[in-house]
Every structure is written in structure tokens, then in C-alpha cells.
């Protein structure tokens, strides 16, 4: 059975989509973590819950409504935060709770929970279709190209907004772009780990990679590697032992994080050059 799983086409789709999502979450998440916006992914995911409920009620493919609702609400929240000077963590709390509230009300109106809602809450990577896989790969490709093209501006405005402004970086536009990319990434990743565990993929591989004391590009590569490993190992192990993939993936990520902390506490991660 162990080798047989590599022959299933649903497993190929799951692993290919999983790797793309792992790369996407880790690079977009790195910018969020460094901006002290670690829970922003969580907030967008929760607001997407409202979008999913809306889609299910209206009979539209729920991920489309989730894309719309989460991106629009995240951009509005960012605007409100800047305009009324609300702190980042408070704005995250507002976004997070309003998404869940809207979702719960819509679910109530449409007659209660369904199996579909559970697959969005906890992910269903083994069920991704060919079309889903194409969509995930295309969005990953587009976001990676945008990040490569605007790499300096993204990094600089994350490092120090004021200095980036003086150097002519359009910081406000870049901030909105990051929110927009985070919105797309979160909804794309819902199929892998679900609404509830999404921020794990944004945060854990990145805080782990940062501990290795490297520069930005190397940190991003380390984070992506850990993320890919967790996703692939999580999908395979969960299938073999018939457990939930989302939870297994996140536990692998936490395992790497714990090992890294262990290695770091022995002093082996200090730089010599």
C-alpha cells in the first residue's frame, strides 16, 4: 500500500497542489510575519468563511465567493485601520469575528451545517479536481512573478516603511498589494488545510526559518523547504494511517519548529561568517 499511493491520480493532484500552496503560503507569510501581521492570514481565512457560506447558500461555487469576500473585506479593513489609526491586532480581531459572524448567520438562514462546510473548515486536499489544481498552479505562478518583480519594494517597505518612502517606494500601494496577495493565498490554501489551520502554514515554517540566522532569500528558501516537506509528508502519512491531512501537515511543521528550537538552544545555529 505504501508505494501504491503514488499511482493514484488524486494523490498526484494533491501533492502537486500541496507543494504549490506550501511555496505560496511560506513566501507571502514571510512578509506578513515580518510585518507583525502573523494572524492576518487567520483573519482573512475566517472572513472567507462568510464568503463560503454565502456561496453555498446562493448555489455559487463557494471558493469564488470566498475570494471575493475575503479580498474585499481585507482591503476595507486595511483602509479602516490606516484611516482611523486602529492597531494591527485589533483590526485582525474585527475582521476575524465579523467573517465568522456573517458565516454563522448565513448558515442559520440556509438551514444549518452541511458536510460541505466541514470540508472548507478542515480542508480536503485529496478531493482537489484537475481544474482546482490548474487554478492553484496558475495563482501560485502569478503571485511568485509579482513578488519577483517587486522584490526590492516588498522587502524594503517591510524592513522600514519610512526609509522606503524616502527612497521613492510607493509604500501604501505595496501594503495593499500584500493584503491582496494574502487574500488570494489564503482562499487558495483553504482546500489544503481548511479555514481553521491556515495561519499555521503562514507562520510556523517562517518563524522556524528565521531562527537559522540567514539573509532574506535563504530564509525564504529554508521556509519553503520546511513547508513543502510538512505538506508532502503530512498528505502521505495521513493517507497511510487514515487521519486528517490538515492536522498531520501542521503537526509536521510544528515538529520541525520544535527540532529547530532544540538545535538552536544547543548553540549550533549561531553564524560563523
Amino acid at each position: 500500500m505504501t508505494f501504491e499511493i503514488f499511482t493514484f491520480s488524486f494523490m498526484h493532484r494533491a501533492i502537486i497542489s500541496g507543494i504549490a500552496i506550501a511555496i505560496l503560503c511560506s513566501i507571502v507569510g514571510l512578509f506578513l510575519v515580518l510585518r507583525r501581521y502573523s494572524l492576518f492570514g487567520d483573519a482573512i481565512a475566517h472572513s472567507s468563511f462568510g464568503g463560503i457560506a454565502l456561496g453555498l447558500m446562493a448555489g455559487i461555487y463557494p471558493l469564488w465567493t470566498a475570494y471575493g469576500v475575503s479580498i474585499v473585506s481585507a482591503l476595507i479593513m486595511t483602509r479602516i485601520k490606516d484611516r482611523f489609526n486602529i492597531s494591527g491586532d485589533a483590526s485582525i480581531a474585527v475582521l476575524l469575528s465579523s467573517g465568522i459572524a456573517v458565516g454563522l448567520v448565513i448558515i442559520g438562514l440556509s438551514g444549518g451545517f452541511t458536510l460541505d462546510i466541514f470540508s472548507f473548515l478542515f480542508g480536503s486536499i485529496l478531493l482537489v479536481s484537475v481544474n482546482d489544481t490548474i487554478l492553484i498552479l496558475s495563482l501560485t505562478g502569478i503571485i511568485l512573478i509579482v513578488i519577483l518583480l517587486l522584490y526590492r519594494q516588498l522587502l524594503y517597505s517591510t524592513f522600514n516603511e519610512e526609509q522606503a518612502k524616502v527612497s521613492g517606494v510607493p509604500v501604501e500601494k505595496i501594503n495593499y498589494l500584500i493584503v491582496f496577495m494574502a487574500g488570494i493565498t489564503v482562499v487558495t490554501s483553504i482546500q489544503l488545510v481548511g479555514v481553521l489551520l491556515i495561519s499555521a502554514l503562514f507562520v510556523i515554517p517562517n518563524v522556524t526559518a528565521i531562527m537559522y540566522g540567514r539573509g532574506f532569500k535563504q530564509t525564504a528558501i529554508i521556509s519553503m523547504s520546511f513547508s513543502i516537506f510538512s505538506v508532502v509528508a503530512g498528505i502521505l502519512i495521513s493517507y497511510i494511517f487514515d487521519i486528517t491531512p490538515a492536522g498531520t501537515i501542521v503537526l509536521f511543521a510544528i515538529g520541525i519548529f520544535a527540532c529547530t528550537m532544540g538545535i538552536k538552544s544547543t548553540g549550533l545555529l549561531s553564524r560563523h561568517n
Binding site: L34, R36, R152, L155, Y156, F159, N160, E162, Q163, A164, V166, S167, G168, A209, I210, G213, R214, G215, F216, K217, Q218, T219
Partner: peptide
């Protein structure tokens, strides 16, 4: 602004920000 170099009083950044000296100088380029 392209003709100006600015050095702030005490640059604020995360202490464990994963940027090397080379990365930081390159940001200004």
C-alpha cells in the same frame, strides 16, 4: 528624492529581521 541619501536617527527594524548587511544596502539600490 533619487538624488538624496537619508540616514535616520535610530533606524527601527525587527532585531531578528532576516536581512544581511548586503540585503540592507541592496534595498537602497
Amino acid at each position: 528624492l533619487k538624488e538624496i541619501g537619508y540616514v535616520p536617527q535610530k533606524p527601527i527594524f525587527e532585531k531578528n529581521f532576516p536581512a544581511t548587511v548586503n540585503d540592507v544596502v541592496k534595498m537602497g539600490l
